[in-house]
Design a protein around this nucleic acid. Structure first.
Lengths: 243, 243
DNA sequence: CGAGGGGTTGACGCCGATCAAAGCTGGTGG
DNA sequence: CCACCAGCTTTGATCGGCGTCAACCCCTCG
């Protein structure tokens, strides 16, 4: 309860407990940002703020009733299994995104498995709470709809950019997306593991590795820390165009 | 104004004019199905029912202000251009689907180009009309949200099934989707042109052609009319699993 | 029935999958 | 603080699948 309660309450990675959406310092990014004050007090209690370590499975495809998560920080992958047993990553989500909104529709079960790629800080909203708000505050439906539209745009973008063309070009797109998603201050990103990259661009692990290794040799990727690399954006964009 | 006005009014392919949503014989499938009666009279006039021949471009990526279309019959493809100039088809849509809902979000421009794959019968809803209804009838937002969720599910499914694995398997998936989308009474479908198939599964035209030709030879596809083929569903599902 | 455009097929080369092995790197415990 | 280990990354060799270019065929529509 010092001078910066908004920050110390829930972006502290060690803190776990009741969410305080009114004070939330990234509230403008979150799903409830447009709700009137009464809705906040009404809804405050059942919403939990939780931190999970990297690699935690938040939920699995086909499950239900676990509720919706709103991401405060960190990155989460949504994946499905293909008929040959390998995983395919369908979307990457970060700060401000919500996952599990599909529970609001009739069948009430998750369409994907959600796994943390980094330590994540999320708010958990029980389905009943969300339904209640959804029924009483029309503004929330618009907010959710906008998020679905964003997800849809992103999914379509993946089909177009990561779903065709030579593997080299797809890697370039992926790196550019990572830069964008992580809001990198300079042009540093934390590289994904090769297995995840392969599951995103739809190639073998070895191919992903060969291409990344090539980019490093050529200086397009320059190491700045453990798993961190600075990207030559111009070079990546060039690959995006020619191959 | 005979005995079957619902049918003769607007499923007649030669008729063009005012939409009559109240009498619409596929109204239960359409976006306005949940609206109260006053909303219908209020909204009736600005909505047009239109038929377009095959290959018509309904709108193009980046345009705005043309409004939203609700599909009464026929099939429409949504496509984007890749960086190398070839088209990539992102989604197929048929009866009951809406296209252009992205206009409701802030930037108000289409994300894709929409082209009729067959003769289509659509209702055209001006953006202002939709906005007005959206603001006054909360039920409509839920209806639209459900449609976005469906589109999202379909987009994700495409990434997983049509975005990886050998070309043979992708063609099998595509044919199974076509069967599902077209609600084929028996297991007949109208095959797409090879260029469209290639743009959906992300291969060259020749590869798509070779695979389809192979399926014909093997009897998995059996000709029943011009461009029409009966599918051996079991065989396609087998390909889906093994390759 | 006749033209035209899409569909099919062949030959060839390259990209990327696969299998296998070696090199790094970060984390752990002495 | 250093050595070591496990898992991840990188690299090599080989092979099959798919893209490309080109020619031919056939079906569809007028």
């Amino acid at each position: 309860m010092g001078n910066t309660p908004e920050r110390s309450y829930c972006t502290d990675i060690t803190w776990q407990g009741r969410a305080n959406c009114q004070r939330c310092n990234i509230r403008h990014l979150m799903m409830f940002s447009g709700l009137p004050e009464p809705a906040f007090t009404e809804v405050l209690k059942p919403i939990d703020n939780i931190c999970f370590p990297s690699a935690t499975v938040l939920f699995e495809e086909g499950q239900h009733d676990k509720g919706v998560f709103s991401i405060r920080s960190g990155m989460i992958k949504l994946l499905s299994l293909t008929t040959d047993g390998t995983q395919r990553i369908v979307r990457l989500l970060g700060r401000g995104s919500a996952i599990g909104l599909e529970l609001l529709e009739a069948d009430e079960c998750y369409r994907h498995t959600a796994v943390a790629l980094t330590p994540v800080d999320v708010c958990h909203i029980p389905l009943d709470t969300l339904r209640h708000l959804d029924a009483n505050y029309p503004q929330l439906c618009h907010e959710i709809r906008a998020r679905l539209q964003e997800d849809l745009d992103r999914a379509d973008q993946w089909v177009v950019t990561l779903g065709s063309g030579p593997a080299r070009r797809r890697v370039a797109w992926l790196l550019l997306f990572m830069l964008e998603y992580s809001n990198a201050p300079d042009q540093d990103i934390e590289l994904l593991g090769r297995e995840d990259m392969a599951a995103i661009i739809g190639t073998s692990i070895e191919t992903a590795s060969r291409i990344v290794a090539g980019l490093k040799r050529r200086g397009t990727l320059h190491k700045t820390g453990p798993h961190r690399y600075r990207c030559d954006v111009a070079a990546l964009e060039a690959i995006t165009r020619q191959g």
